[in-house]
Nucleic acid binder design. Structure first.
Lengths: 146, 146
DNA sequence: TGGGATACCATGGGACCATATGGGCGTCAA
DNA sequence: TTGACGCCCATATGGTCCCATGGTATCCCA
């Protein structure tokens, strides 16, 4: 499969590392993504992780705006100022830095959440609560309506 | 028959596997579904299982929304974050992971429920109770109400 | 029509392998 | 010099593949 799908929770070890789920790693390999672009998600308290194509897309979005527009400035502040590059170690783990911890509330465990063309890092309880709320929303209002 | 119909309850073995009913397997074969897309149902505490066409349908729905909209984000959280791909083993069994157990309450037995173009995994007691309640609902209010 | 053979299916378990996780050690930079 | 990070190896758990068993329905032939 070539999309990031499903969710899984892994433990952070004593060195502050966490294994990226095998399924996600093989998607990364398939897309030939070696350097990870990570940024603080716009919508949720989660870190979004993807390839350079993600950053490219955002930059094209900015380029389509007026350079001096507030919107373009806000976007750049988020995707550049709120983004970092990361690499996996030889075992497919990534370091959970304060950049990640502070924004997500992650402490001992990380929930990896597939989002098709990227995946996200969540604090387990936060993901649980947010997904449940989203489901409740859909259950009452349905997929199609507002 | 080319639709998923009826229900059946099978036992989970010591390794956490359960046989998919033969009738369902032949529908899968008939529809040439080899990789199963499973997601946490929006309506019931059940896992819905179908082919990639299911996921495609959902993704088209998302694509019709603004990429940055809260609604598109919530949908993706459910469809991508709440979905997995699974494969049957050579005997037509699937592994009942925590992803499935936690959401459905399944412990020792699984009830397979046909839903025409997909089927569902339920905890037997939950299915029993929900189906009974639905039947009661129809008897008193009919099909047409809410 | 009855009884045995047969095919299919749910279930069980052994062996093997991938993966998540833990920890040691060297290197480089603050 | 110490701490962060890279690379190496060890290990247990859990998942996958393969083969075995028992039960049941079906079929076929006497």
């Amino acid at each position: 499969m070539n999309r990031f799908l499903s969710n899984a929770t892994n433990r952070i070890d004593a060195k502050g590392r966490v294994s990226v789920p095998s399924a996600f790693r093989s998607v990364l390999a398939q897309r030939d993504i070696r350097e990870l672009y990570c940024f603080q998600d716009f919508m949720f308290p989660a870190i979004s992780v993807g390839g350079l194509d993600l950053l490219d897309r955002f930059e094209r979005q900015i380029a389509s705006e007026d350079v001096f527009s507030p919107k373009a400035n806000r976007m750049s502040l988020l995707i550049h100022g709120g983004g970092v590059f990361m690499k996996l170690d030889s075992e497919g783990r990534l370091a959970v830095t304060d950049f990640i911890r502070d924004f997500t509330g992650i402490t001992t465990d990380v929930t990896f959440v597939g989002r098709a063309d990227h995946f996200q890092l969540w604090a387990p309880q936060t993901f649980e609560a947010t997904q449940t709320a989203a489901r409740e929303e859909f259950r009452t209002r349905g997929l199609g309506s507002g």
